[in-house]
Design a protein around this nucleic acid. Structure first.
Lengths: 149, 149
DNA sequence: AAAGTAAGTTTACCATTGTAAACGAATTAT
DNA sequence: ATAATTCGTTTACAATGGTAAACTTACTTT
């Protein structure tokens, strides 16, 4: 089994569809339509177009089951989320990553279990922590360089 | 002084420009051009277009200084990053937020100080932690509902 | 004052995305 | 078998975004 590379960008509208697929594992267009017609107030047409595009991009698989298709995801939600999350960290200086994670934590409701888990992860991270994170930015795109003279 | 609302979406290309503005506080188009011509391999034209669009959107301010403009940001980097980060959490079930933060932490290099800071934040979060985070998804877009029967 | 140059504005153009109607084939109901 | 329904495909069209040339002003240099 080969791991497939998906550089494919999943757009907002497509993501809505993917969530239905991920949540239900194997879905028909009918299922997707019923869920999203309500939430998004899209016509059937719109949803069919998006399904078609996702299949075209290889993000969704189809298997014939009788006359209709069963759609399944070719990429896991976790993986897609990770990729998407990465976008934000590509927009900032490496040195700020810690702060951003900090504000993300501040901005969201967590459960006690979540906090425990995060604490454990942080504990482990200590083994790999550095004294100072390296700045990756080209000169002129972050303030770090200013301190070098 | 009023806090301005920016629902404005900052695109990838625009973000490159914003980083230069944020890093240098008050910049001329010349400065932006010199930084990005290298990094992005864009022509002057392209950069001028983006500057113009950002001014149009109200994300950048201009002051005349003699014949040229000085561009300044109307929105702080921290705020913009926060907004952008929010996008990802709008794409997932609230219940998964903790896990996503977990993988974000795993995926990035942190300094000892970062870890300390995050630990403190988590410590504080305990006062507001919940037993179980509420799912916000419409039925059919996450698995949570499946467990309700 | 004339010519050259730097800076901002207008136009342009194509790809992607959101949104959806129309079409065609297959299936089921009458 | 015929009509109605269902499901996927094709076509469409406007808005956004990436990329850039052309144009216009207003300085600056000679």
């Amino acid at each position: 089994m080969s791991t497939i590379e998906f550089n494919t960008h999943i757009t907002d509208a497509e993501w809505e569809v993917m969530r239905v697929v991920w949540a239900n594992d194997r879905v028909t267009s009918k299922k997707v339509i019923s869920v999203l017609q309500e939430k998004m107030d899209w016509t059937q047409s719109t949803i069919k177009t998006i399904l078609g595009r996702l299949v075209g991009k290889g993000v969704l698989n189809t298997e014939h089951e009788g006359r209709k298709f069963i759609y399944t995801a070719n990429i896991e939600e976790t993986e897609a989320v990770r990729d998407y999350a990465e976008d934000i960290f590509n927009r900032i200086c490496n040195k700020k990553v810690g702060n951003v994670i900090g504000s993300i934590i501040e901005d969201h409701v967590l459960s006690f279990d979540d906090i425990d888990r995060l604490e454990k992860i942080l504990e482990m991270k200590k083994s790999f922590a550095v004294e100072e994170v390296d700045c990756n930015c080209p000169e002129g795109q972050c303030e770090c360089h200013l301190h070098h003279h």
